[in-house]
């Protein structure tokens, strides 16, 4: 596992936040996933050794929380809210628009690996529905037109990449 030096130093910084090392498990998983894009199999024993746990104690946590993933995803992660308030204001059309624009289906990596579109549960921004989280950034009032516009931006950024 090839972690960036910055990740390693943040790992060492976060462990003493807790009187019990095991508590640093979620923070470590986040840090490693942010660095590598996903949690490779070798991350589990590595973290277990770091925190004095058994690898199974890491696996059981990774498999419980929806945000942790054990396979790589697209370069950009598009999370469309599926839950009621967003659905009432057109969230399903929003999701379908992203699927269409990137020729993909929910939960899959688009051909070429540019995006993964996912349907997720309430993002706590129901008043500005439908909402979409792209990587770390929240977008509000994402109707079909805005979904198309966001898709075009992602495509343009991809085309500009050397």
């Amino acid at each position: 596992m090839n972690l960036k030096p910055a990740t390693l130093s943040r790992i060492d910084e976060v462990i003493p936040h807790y009187p019990v090392r095991r508590s640093a498990l979620l923070p470590l998983l986040h840090l490693i996933q942010e660095d590598l894009g996903y949690l490779p199999d070798e991350a589990m024993p590595w973290i277990a050794a770091k925190l004095g746990l058994e690898p199974i104690q890491v696996y059981e946590v990774v498999t419980f929380y929806p945000m942790f993933r054990r396979r790589p995803i697209g370069r950009r992660h598009i999370k469309v809210c599926r839950t009621l308030s967003c659905a009432l204001r057109g969230g399903h059309e929003t999701c379908a628009t992203f699927e269409r624009e990137f020729h993909t289906h929910c939960g899959e990596v688009s051909p070429g690996g540019e995006v993964t579109v996912e349907f997720v549960e309430c993002l706590a921004s129901c008043g500005t529905a439908p909402v979409v989280l792209i990587d770390d950034e929240l977008h509000e009032h994402v109707d079909v037109a805005k979904a198309q516009q966001l898709s075009n931006q992602i495509k343009a950024a991809a085309a500009a990449r050397p």
């Binding site: 936040h17 508590s23 979620l26 923070p27 998983l29 986040h30 419980f64 929380y65 929806p66 945000m67 942790f68 997720v120 549960e121």
Partner: peptide, 12 residues
Amino acid sequence: CELFVHRGAGAY
């Protein structure tokens, strides 16, 4: 008194 932020991971 110390105060730290702890992030969840998507479980209601």
